[in-house]
C-alpha cells in the first residue's frame, strides 16, 4: 500500500489528468453531435449513442491513453537515473511493478467511469423513451476490465523503451492490429486474447452479440493470464538490468 501511495504521489502533480479529462469529453460531445445529425439512421437510442461515443474511443483512444499513462509512469524512472534508485532499492521488484500497474489501472478505471457518467448525462439530455439496457452496462464493465492486460503490456513496453512517445505509437498500432485479428475471426481463440476489442465490437452490434457469458468469463481469465505474463516480464526486465 505504501508503494502504491508513493506511485500515486508521483503522478499527483503531473498533467496526466488533462488528457484523461479531455479525450473522453471530446468523445462524448462529438459522438453525441454525430448521433444528432444521423438520428434517422441511428434509431436505437442508448445503443446507438454508445456506438458513437465508445466505438472509436474504446478501440483506439482508450489504448492510447493507457499508453500515455504507462509511458509517463515509467518515464519518471527513466529520467535522471531514477531507474538506478529503483534497481538498488530494498523493495522487491514484484511490489514495484504491481504498484505501478495498479496505479495506472485505477486511474484508467476512473477515466472509464468518467466516460460512462458523461454518456449517461448525454443520454439523459436526449430524453430517450427506452431505458438503458443493463446488458450494455455489463458489456461496458467487462470491456473495461478485460483491457487490464493492455495496462500490463504497455507498462512492459514503456519499461523496455525509454522514449515517451514510441510506446504510445505502439499502443495505437497494436489496437489496429488487434481489431483486424479480432474482427476477421481467422483463429477463433484470438478473440479471447484481444478481448477488449471483441467486446467493444460486440457492443456495436448489440443486442445481436455473439458473446455468451462463458465467453466473457474466458475473456476475463485470458486477460488476467496475459496480465500476469507481462507483470512477470517486467520483473524479469528489472532483474536483467541489475545483472
Amino acid at each position: 500500500m505504501k508503494i502504491f501511495l508513493s506511485e500515486l504521489r508521483k503522478l499527483k502533480r503531473s498533467s496526466i489528468i488533462l488528457p484523461l479529462l479531455i479525450v473522453p469529453l471530446i468523445s462524448v460531445i462529438f459522438g453525441s453531435l454525430n448521433f444528432v445529425f444521423n438520428r434517422e439512421i441511428l434509431t436505437r437510442e442508448w445503443v446507438s449513442l454508445i456506438t458513437q461515443v465508445y466505438l472509436f474511443y474504446g478501440l483506439f483512444f482508450m489504448p492510447a491513453l493507457i499508453g500515455i499513462m504507462c509511458s509517463y509512469s515509467w518515464g519518471l524512472e527513466h529520467k535522471r537515473n531514477n531507474m538506478k534508485l529503483i534497481l538498488s532499492s530494498k523493495t522487491s521488484f514484484v511490489k514495484i511493478v504491481l504498484a505501478k500497474t495498479a496505479v495506472v489501472f485505477c486511474i484508467y478505471a476512473i477515466s472509464q467511469l468518467y466516460l460512462f457518467i458523461l454518456y449517461l448525462i448525454a443520454g439523459t439530455l436526449f430524453s430517450f423513451s427506452s431505458p438503458l439496457p443493463l446488458e450494455l452496462v455489463g458489456l461496458y464493465i467487462v470491456s473495461s476490465l478485460v483491457a487490464g492486460y493492455l495496462v500490463c503490456m504497455q507498462s512492459y513496453i514503456s519499461l523496455k523503451i525509454k522514449s515517451f512517445t514510441i510506446p504510445i505509437v505502439i499502443a495505437v498500432g497494436f489496437s489496429f492490429l488487434s481489431i483486424l485479428i479480432a474482427q476477421n475471426n481467422v483463429v477463433t481463440a484470438l478473440k479471447y486474447v484481444f478481448s477488449n476489442v471483441s467486446v467493444v465490437l460486440n457492443m456495436n452490434a448489440f443486442p445481436d452479440t455473439d458473446l455468451s457469458q462463458v465467453d466473457l468469463i474466458i475473456m476475463l481469465i485470458m486477460s488476467a493470464l496475459v496480465s500476469a505474463i507481462f507483470i512477470g516480464l517486467q520483473v524479469r526486465e528489472l532483474k536483467r538490468r541489475v545483472r
Binding site: G31, F37, F60
Partner: peptide, 24 residues
Amino acid sequence: SNQLISTAISIIGALSGIIFLLLG
C-alpha cells in the same frame, strides 16, 4: 519539455479528426 502535452494533443487531434470527418 513534458512530452505528455504534445502526445496528448496528438491523440485529441486524431480523435477529433476522425469524428469531425464523420460530422461532415
